[in-house]
Structure formats: C-alpha cells, structure tokens
C-alpha cells in the first residue's frame, strides 16, 4: 500500500512527497512492480491527479489542510482511497456534469476531472464521516469482457 499525506496551503501543495509528481512516480513504481498495463497506470495516475488537485483547490478555502491518498493493489482490482478534512463535497453529486457537446466557441472550460474519474474507474463511493470526505475508487486491472 502506498500512502500519501499531503497538506494544502492556500492552493500551494505541500506533501509528504515533494509534490504530486513524486506521488505519481510512486504510483508508477507500484504499477511496475505489480505488472499493470501502461493504460491502467495512466488512468490511476490521472484520477489521483484530478482528485488531489480538487482538494487543493476547493476543500480548505485557502487554509492549510491534509489530504491522504492510499493506493492498494489487490488480486483483480486496484483501490484508491482519498480522505480530506475539508468542507463537505461529494464529487458524485456536487460537481456539475461537463458539457461534452457544444461547439468550440461555446464549450465551457473545466469540469472534466470528476468526469474522468466516473468514466475511467469501475466504482466510486463517497462518504462523509467524522467530518471527513472519504472517496473510495475501485478499478479492475483488466477490462471486463
């Protein structure tokens, strides 16, 4: 299991790792050890990147706070858990769905990070518990038939 404790400070990210790049490098190392495909490593890195960045940007209203990331490789799945003590935010219901169809000139910017998570992972669960936002994300190592 890989564990990150990060603390956010007014949009500046300070982590147990030097930065998110270090966390991603550790996720890649875990994937290599565990024989993940390049695409699986890409999807997991992307989802962690997007969700940790969301916490940094929105959870703490410019005050320092923590975000914990745990990545567990199981036999057939990879489980990602992301926990923060910030304001209640359920990305499954509180994030506006992105506009995927408007033409270039009217296509709004943003809103893709949560959409990536929902689309690229097999299961996403949110719980608000002990004043914490707790996200549990599961993806199968191999695409389902």
């Amino acid at each position: 299991m890989l564990l990150l404790r990060a603390d956010t400070n007014g949009g500046q990210r300070r982590t147990g790792y030097e930065d998110l790049a270090d966390l991603v490098a550790s996720v890649e190392a875990l994937g290599e050890e565990d024989g993940w495909s390049g695409d699986l490593t890409f999807r997991i890195s992307l989802v962690i990147d997007e969700l940790v960045q969301n916490v940094v940007d929105y959870a703490y209203n410019d005050t320092p706070g923590d975000v914990e990331v745990a990545v567990t490789s199981r036999e057939e799945t990879v489980v990602i858990e992301i926990v923060d003590d910030g304001i209640p935010f359920d990305p499954l219901t509180d994030a506006a769905p992105p506009d995927l169809t408007s033409p270039i000139e009217s296509r709004p910017i943003g809103g893709l990070g949560v959409h990536f998570t929902k689309t690229l992972m097999d299961d996403v669960e949110y719980r608000r518990e002990s004043d914490q936002n707790r996200l549990k994300i599961v993806t199968r190592k191999r695409p389902s038939e």
């Binding site: 000139e105 296509r107 943003g110």
Partner: peptide, 20 residues
C-alpha cells in the same frame, strides 16, 4: 506520455483562440 484536465483546458483555450 500524459495529460490531465489542466492540460485539456489549455487545448480548449487554444482551439477557441485559433478559431477566432
């Protein structure tokens, strides 16, 4: 090797500005 939504944002901004 990799692009996140932050990079996709730049692609969309560039597409908008070049179209204009």
């Amino acid at each position: 090797a990799y692009i996140s939504s932050a990079g996709m944002r730049v692609i969309l901004l560039t597409a908008k500005s070049l179209q204009k």
